[in-house]
Design a protein around this nucleic acid. Structure first.
Lengths: 189, 189
DNA sequence: TTGATAAAACTAATATCATTAGTTAAAATA
DNA sequence: TATTTTAACTAATGATATTAGTTTTATCAA
């Protein structure tokens, strides 16, 4: 490919390639060299689109958070209460299952504190708050509940992905039991 | 340092240096180059002790899991029930707080499936099972409970470390509420 | 339409890694 | 005391990210 081709790559095409690479080979294989090879260009050319490897990974994290949010939001349409809670929970872990590399990228963001990363993650928090709202947890207790839910979902997904759950025990059943136990425990008191 | 010095480095000294480096600078800074520099030797010399960078990181993971287990086990001595559960839970998150890099290493093990990594992690699971035993969860429900507890502890620690919890809400209070809610919810049914 | 600008690729070069091969000197052992 | 093993070393290789500077072409303004 010569300088300034007719159809140039755009950020989204590159992120998609990086995402597929991540899902297929793991986040550690998302290098400028590999991404460039998959796109048929040379590594330095990627600097025209991203601020180096760190920038690419940061964008991949935002890309992943956005997609994760969308799937969670979709799953919660038209349902409420326990159904909604289970819906967004399974949407969350299913996303991590289908896109292990991209999910991993959402955690590895070089600068987690970057404005864009934060706001992409905040939408997921807001959605969770809304779903938990129907349980009528008052004040701080609702916020603690969101922390708990996030902890469960991230911890569960992460451990499942890392092969942490070895027992021959259905994973979806585990998740449902865990979520229900947690929310029932939060409702009391 | 010349060939075959009077006092040679041993694995533990190297792991300690790697651990400090990880806690101070992050796991991504645990490179053979950096570890060697901190020890005053040349990178290739590390191959006399570990199977490359992957081997070093794997050993660091086992080192971390062992230390984590020890602190959890210590915290549970002489207590039972809710007290024991909260004790091991706070021991877990406090370990992650005090040793963020080493904790991170326990998850990044290049081959999580390696025998030694598995067995080091299994001890923590066994300890959790023992602590949860007093709640008289029958059969599979006890196993689901262990998965839930691990998910909460790992998810909470990981999110706290990554700066995921932004609200001005006491973290220890969150943890206690979450754990209690979960275990209370598990007891019912 | 044409000329200037900007974009998006490129090549070349540098620095930092991990890793391998082979070497050396001193400790450990027989 | 002679041999072996150990734990450091140097040197070299290959992969990586990154920077600098170049080139071609699309885009845009006059």
């Amino acid at each position: 490919m010569s300088p300034r081709p007719k159809i140039a790559l755009d950020r989204n095409t590159i992120l998609q390639a990086a995402g597929e690479l991540a899902d297929r080979m793991g986040i550690q294989e998302v290098t400028l060299a590999n991404v460039a090879k998959n796109l048929g260009i040379r590594p330095p050319s990627l600097y025209n689109h991203f601020d180096g490897l760190g920038g690419l990974r940061k964008e991949l994290a935002i890309y992943g958070l956005t997609k994760l949010y969308e799937e969670m939001a979709q799953s919660a349409i038209g349902v409420s209460g326990d159904q909604a809670l289970l819906a967004i929970s399974t949407a969350y872990v299913n996303f991590a299952r289908k896109h292990p590399g991209v999910y991993e990228a959402t955690l590895f963001a070089p600068d987690m504190d970057a404005e864009e990363v934060q706001s992409a993650g905040a939408k997921i928090v807001t959605l969770s708050v809304r779903v938990l709202h129907s349980y009528e947890l008052e004040g701080d207790r609702a916020l603690h509940a969101v922390r708990g839910l996030r902890s469960i979902l991230h911890g569960f997904s992460s451990l499942e992905q890392k092969g942490g759950f070895k027992l021959a025990l259905d994973l979806n059943e585990s998740l449902e039991i865990i979520i229900k136990a947690f929310i029932n425990g939060m409702k009391e008191n």
